[in-house]
Design a protein around this nucleic acid. Structure first.
Lengths: 295, 295
DNA sequence: TGTATACTCTCCCCCAATAGGAGAGTCAAG
DNA sequence: CTTGACTCTCCTATTGGGGGAGAGTATACA
C-alpha cells in the first residue's frame, strides 16, 4: 500500500467536501463519482482527496442548474469550450424563462392580494389563465335585441343544422358579442363541430382561433348575476395589469334544462336559472411597461 | 333522476375544464374534488358543471404556488379573508426568495460564461459557494519567512500539543495569512479540536467563526501552482461581482506524506508535491449595487 | 343482435434528487 | 470483550401527475 493511496471513509470525505453521505452514495450509484476503492468484503467505500476537484465540478455544475444526468454527460464527454458555452447559454435561457414564470406567479399573487384587500367576504370568482385550443365551429351572426331570447333561437338554428350532418363535437356552445349599443347587440353564436361540413347561409363554418392566454371565469347561477363575473374579471385585470385582447367568449356549460353539447330544447326560458353554469373567456395580453426584472 | 343532476363522464368534464383525466382522478383520490356520483358497479365517475367553480379555485390556488395539500386545507377550512391574506403574503415571500435564488444561479452562470470566454482549454478550477460551519481550533500565529518551511514546524507544534490532550477533531488543518510583506508573512496555523482544551501560549484555543458564503477552490498538485487557483478565484470573483470579506483560509486536505487529520511527519518537504490537495476558502459578499430585479 | 370503437376503470411503474430509517455488519478504543 | 461510532444495503417517502397494461363498459352502426 502506497502511503499516497491513503483514503477516507465516506463520512470523513463527506465532512471535508461538505456534502452528505447520502449524496456520495447516490453519486456512486449513478457512476458520477466512484470511490477509489471499495472493500470487497465489507463494501466500505474509500475516497481519496484527489477526488475533491471532480466532486467540486459536479457541485458547481449542479449549482448552475444542470441535472445530474447532464453533469454526468458533461464530465464524460470531452466537450470543447464552445460546446460547453452553448450548453451554458441554453441553460441561461431556461433560467430566464424560469424567472419569468416565477415573476408571473408573483404578479398573480399580488393581483389576488389587491383583490382581497378591503373585502370582508371571500372571493366568489377565481380567474384562471390557460391556453385554449383552436376549434372548428358552425356559427350564425345577427344583430338582435339585448333582452330578447333571440339567442336561444339562434342556437336552435345552428344546432339543428349541425344535427343534420351529425357533426356535433362534444364541446359546449359559445357566443361572442361583436358590438353592443343601446339594447342592440351584434351577436355570434357558435356550436363546435367535429369535421368541416358545407356551410349554408347564414351559417358559417370556420376555425375559431386558439388563444394562448385566456382568462377564464366560471359563473354559477342566473344570467342576471353574470355582470358580477364580468366585474370580478375586470377587477382582476386591473390588479394584474393585463388588457383584453379580443372578443369575450361566453361559453354555455349548462343552461336551460339541458347539458351543453346536446340539442337545445324549446324550454330555454323556463327559469331554472339558478342551475346555469357559464364561463366567460377573455383573451388577454400584458400591459406593456418597462420591466426591470430581466435584462 | 332530476334532469338537473345530469352529469358528465370524466373525459367530457376534463375537456370542458381543460384539465387532464389523470388530474381529475388524482384530485378525486386526494379528496380535493370528488365526482358528484360514482357508479357503484362500474366505478365510473360522474361530474357536474357545478363543480367547475371549485375546480377553478383549485387551479387558481395551484397557480399561485400552493401545494395541493395546502389547497385542500384552504378549501376545507373556512379561512377568513385576513387569514387568507396572511397565507398569500407568506407565499409571496417564498416566491421572492425563489426568484432571488434563480437570479443568483443566473449570476453564477454568467460568471462561468465570462470565465470561459476567450479560453481554448477547459477550466481547471471550479469555484463552489457553500456555507462553512464554525469550528473550534487550536492555533499559533507568527511572522515567518515566506519561503521557509516554518509553516511545517508550526503545524508540528500545534499538532503535538493537541495530541497530548487527544483532542484532535477529524477535520483538516488550515492556515490564514493575516498580512504579507516582502517575503515575510504573518501566518496563523490552525488545527481543529473536538473540545475546549486549556490553551498554553503561544497556542490559542478559540472558535473559528462560521461563514455563510464561502467560495471554495480545490487545488491539486504542487504549492508552486497554487497561485493558479488564486487567479482562478479572482477571475471568478470579478465575473461574479463579489468581493472577498475576510481572510482567505488555506485548508490542507493532503500534504507531505500524510493525510490530513493526523500528525505531521518531519518529511514535510520531501517532494511528493504532485499529490498535494489544498483547498482555498474565500469568504465573500456581493458587491453592493442597485438591483432592479426585486422591489 | 352482434360488433367495432371509443371510453373508463384499477393497478403498477416512472420521473429527480435526495432524506429518513431499519436491521445488520464493521472498526477502533478502552 | 464491550461499547459506541460508523457503514452497509434495502425500503419507503417526497410532488404532481404521465404512460401503459389489461379488463370492463357505453354507444353507434350494420
Amino acid at each position: 500500500m502506497d502511503i499516497f493511496q491513503q483514503t477516507f471513509r465516506i463520512g470523513e470525505f463527506a465532512r471535508f467536501a461538505r456534502v452528505t453521505i447520502k449524496m456520495l452514495r447516490y453519486y456512486d450509484r449513478l457512476g458520477l463519482l466512484r470511490p477509489v476503492a471499495v472493500d470487497p468484503e465489507t463494501n466500505y467505500r474509500y475516497y481519496s482527496a484527489e477526488q475533491l476537484p471532480r466532486l467540486n465540478r459536479i457541485i458547481a455544475l449542479k449549482d448552475l442548474g444542470f441535472s445530474l444526468d447532464q453533469v454526468a454527460e458533461i464530465l464524460e464527454e470531452g466537450f470543447t469550450n464552445e460546446e460547453l458555452k452553448g450548453m451554458l447559454k441554453f441553460k441561461r435561457q431556461e433560467i430566464v424563462k424560469q424567472i419569468a414564470t416565477e415573476q408571473e406567479r408573483l404578479n398573480l399573487l399580488e393581483a389576488h392580494l389587491k383583490q382581497l384587500d378591503g373585502k370582508a367576504e371571500p372571493l366568489r370568482y377565481d380567474v384562471v389563465v390557460r391556453p385554449v385550443a383552436e376549434q372548428l365551429i358552425a356559427s350564425v351572426r345577427r344583430v338582435i335585441s339585448d333582452h330578447s331570447n333571440e339567442v336561444g333561437s339562434l342556437f336552435d338554428t345552428v344546432e339543428t343544422f349541425v344535427a343534420k350532418f351529425n357533426a356535433r363535437a362534444k364541446l359546449p356552445p359559445l357566443a361572442i358579442a361583436h358590438h353592443r349599443a343601446e339594447d342592440r347587440v351584434d351577436a355570434e353564436v357558435m356550436v363546435p363541430v367535429d369535421r368541416a361540413i358545407t356551410p349554408e347561409p347564414p351559417i358559417q363554418i370556420y376555425r375559431l382561433p386558439a388563444v394562448d392566454q385566456m382568462a377564464c371565469v366560471v359563473h354559477h347561477g342566473s344570467y342576471c348575476d353574470l355582470k358580477r363575473a364580468y366585474e370580478a374579471f375586470f377587477e382582476w385585470a386591473a390588479a394584474s395589469e393585463v388588457q383584453t385582447a379580443g372578443h369575450t367568449r361566453v361559453v354555455y356549460l349548462r343552461f336551460g334544462a339541458t347539458e351543453v353539447g346536446y340539442h337545445l330544447p324549446a324550454s330555454f326560458v323556463t327559469d331554472n336559472s339558478e342551475k346555469y353554469v357559464t364561463e366567460l373567456q377573455f383573451p388577454i395580453k400584458k400591459v406593456p411597461k418597462n420591466d426591470h426584472s430581466l435584462t
